[in-house]
Computed example of a mutant assay.
Amino acid sequence: MNLTGAAGEHYVMSQLLRRDFIAALAPVGVPNTDIVVTDAVGDRLASLQVKSRRELGGDGGWHMGKKHEAIVGELLFYCFVDFGVDLKAHPRCWVLPSAVVAETIRESYRVWLSTPGKGGRMRNSTDHRRFLPNFDRTGISIERGAGWLDPYEDNWEQLRGVV
């Protein structure tokens, strides 16, 4: 059983509550929202989508889909949680506006699709996407190299500007 996704949602919830945000897990099945965040009186709501990973793959990224290229909203944010290699690792989290995520996924996929694959063959279209902390490692040049996510790490305060 893989509970990494649930662990990521609860990790993000704990970070929000520790910072005095009013937050709740969205009901199962809500398509683009894992957590709802509001201001003290409930006037403004923001939605968070949580993507979680453990250090299993070689690229350090998160699985995404084609649909994430178009999911954009002023009040929608993504939280990318990395639990690291083992239980001794301190979780890391990056909080990004959905527009940044959508643009990054669109551009990286466009460049990936236009570059030759193994044996110089053209790549086949797919619905799978990757969101990476360092696209330079893949040979995809989209100005998202090492450190591009640094301004977003634990940047919970940007939510105060919207809720």
Rank of each mutant, 00 (worst) to 15 (best):
I142G: 05
A89F: 08
G145K: 08
G57A: 10
G60L: 05
G42W: 02
A99F: 01
G145N: 02
Q158E: 02
R137N: 03
R54V: 13
F21S: 04
R19C: 08
H128N: 14
L87K: 15
W94Q: 02
G117L: 11
I140P: 13
I142S: 08
T126W: 05
R92Y: 05
V81G: 08
G57V: 07
S114P: 14
G65Q: 07
D127A: 14
N124I: 05
D127K: 14
A146S: 15
F80M: 04
I142E: 02
C79M: 06
P133R: 01
V81P: 00
E153Y: 02
M1Q: 11
R92W: 03
L159P: 07
A7I: 15
A26C: 13
S125M: 14
H90W: 10
Q15D: 01
L45H: 11
A26F: 15
L76I: 05
E157M: 06
D150C: 02
S108Q: 04
N124T: 09
Y152F: 08
V37F: 06
G5M: 11
R18S: 03
S114E: 07
G42T: 10
F83A: 02
P27W: 15
A6K: 15
D86V: 15
A146I: 12
S141K: 14
R137E: 01
L25N: 13
G5T: 12
R53I: 02
L76W: 09
F135P: 03
F135M: 02
R110W: 13
V81T: 12
F77I: 06
A146L: 05
I22N: 04
I105R: 04
L149C: 01
W156F: 10
G139P: 11
L87C: 12
N32G: 10
L48E: 09
A40L: 06
P151W: 00
Y152Q: 02
S108L: 06
D150A: 13
V50K: 14
E153I: 04
H10I: 07
N124Q: 09
V95F: 02
K88N: 12
G161C: 01
L75G: 05
D59W: 13
E103G: 04
V37P: 00
P27C: 07
G42C: 04
R18T: 13
R144A: 03
L75R: 08
F77P: 01
L132I: 05
T138W: 12
I142M: 07
D154M: 10
G29Q: 10
S141F: 10
H128S: 14
G145E: 02
L96C: 07
H128I: 11
S125K: 15
L113K: 12
H128G: 15
H10K: 14
L76Y: 15
N134E: 02
G139V: 12
R110Q: 05
L45V: 09
T115E: 03
K51P: 03
D136Y: 13
D136S: 12
D43F: 13
G8N: 09
G147E: 01
V37H: 01
W94E: 00
V95S: 00
P151G: 07
G120L: 11
G58V: 06
L48R: 04
P91R: 14
G84P: 08
V162N: 02
V28N: 11
A7K: 10
T138D: 03
Q158T: 01
R18N: 14
F80E: 00
A26W: 14
G57W: 04
F77L: 00
C79V: 07
E143F: 14
P97C: 00
D127E: 09
V101K: 00
E9G: 00
V162F: 06
G29M: 09
D20C: 08
K51Y: 15
K88Y: 13
V36R: 02
